[in-house]
Amino acid sequence: MAFKHLVAFVALFMAAFGAVSPARAQPLQIVVFGDSLAAGYGLAAGDGFADKLQAALVAGGHDVAVANAGVSGDTSSGGLSRLDWSVPDGTGLVILELGGNDMLRGISPDITEKNLDAMLARLKARNIAVLLAGMRAAPNLGAGYQKSFDGIYLRLAEKYGVPLYPFFLDGVAGNAALNQADGMHPNAAGVDMIVERILPVVEKTMAALPRNS
């Protein structure tokens, strides 16, 4: 009889207070989906954006696992072709950072926008939140190209209602001390700057996710 009473007590306790949800017991899965800027081109292990973002989030008390799904040289077309298998089920947030290589190759902004639009639509259909990281065109491509390319990210952020970090390389682009010798890829200190600046936006995005409600 005592054992039966114990079982009944445990059942009442769980009904009253609820068991820990398996979804909430797991770290938030974040995927950084992008090109060489996400992949950590030219950097030592642990110095890439995904690793340093995870360290900063964990230091801030967040239970997260940040996966690096960056591919050096990737364009928006390449990203679209690998999106479905690069972002696994269970992902809670994707930081989408693509378009820089399209710009460097002079690809039509219309194509870049179409590809990013399709990626956002697919992620939305899978109920995966997105933080869109924007890029900016080099001035030497002309004012018309620059205006069209730079406007891609705001237009898509507004269309899909996703948060936008306007320029992934904010504070780093053009600063020789924060870039590798090629002048395009951040060094370890440059990654630190990117993480420092984007971190509040990532945390705000995380706070709005259903699992945190």
Score class of each variant (00 low, 15 high):
N187Q: 06
A137D: 08
G61P: 05
V202F: 08
D74Y: 04
T91L: 05
A44E: 07
D89N: 13
A2N: 14
N179P: 03
E196K: 14
G42V: 05
V64I: 01
D74H: 02
R122H: 14
I152E: 13
F13I: 03
G48L: 00
V195I: 02
N140A: 14
N175S: 09
G40A: 00
V87H: 08
A143M: 09
I111A: 15
R136S: 14
M14R: 02
I128E: 10
A38R: 00
L123P: 10
G174H: 13
K147F: 07
G18K: 00
Q29Y: 00
M206A: 04
M135Q: 15
L132P: 13
L154M: 15
K4E: 15
I107Q: 11
H185N: 08
V10K: 07
V130P: 07
P139V: 12
L116K: 11
H62Y: 05
R24L: 12
V202H: 06
D51N: 02
A38V: 06
P139R: 14
P200K: 11
F33T: 04
A208F: 09
R211G: 13
I95D: 01
A15D: 00
V31I: 03
Y41E: 09
S77P: 01
A118M: 15
P200V: 10
A16C: 03
T205R: 11
P88D: 10
V66I: 01
L209V: 11
L120G: 09
